[in-house]
């Protein structure tokens, strides 16, 4: 099974996802920013089930 070992604050790190694009013709930072915004929320979902729910 895939072993990603996400750090705190992420679930599928940008560094992994970045390599999954065949190529990026446009603004990479834009992709990264959007990716990481939802990463934080997903992280919070997993951990809030543990700590709050």
């Amino acid at each position: 099974m895939e072993n990603i070992r996400p750090k705190a604050g992420e679930v599928i790190p940008w560094e992994i996802h970045e390599k999954e694009y065949e190529k990026i013709l446009g603004d990479k930072e834009l992709l990264k920013q959007q990716w990481q915004n939802i990463e934080t929320i997903a992280f919070r979902f997993i951990w809030s089930i543990l700590t709050d729910f």
Binding site: R5, P6, I46
Partner: peptide, 9 residues
Amino acid sequence: DSPTEFLTN
């Protein structure tokens, strides 16, 4: 080894 994956999986 990987807390978030342990929780999820």
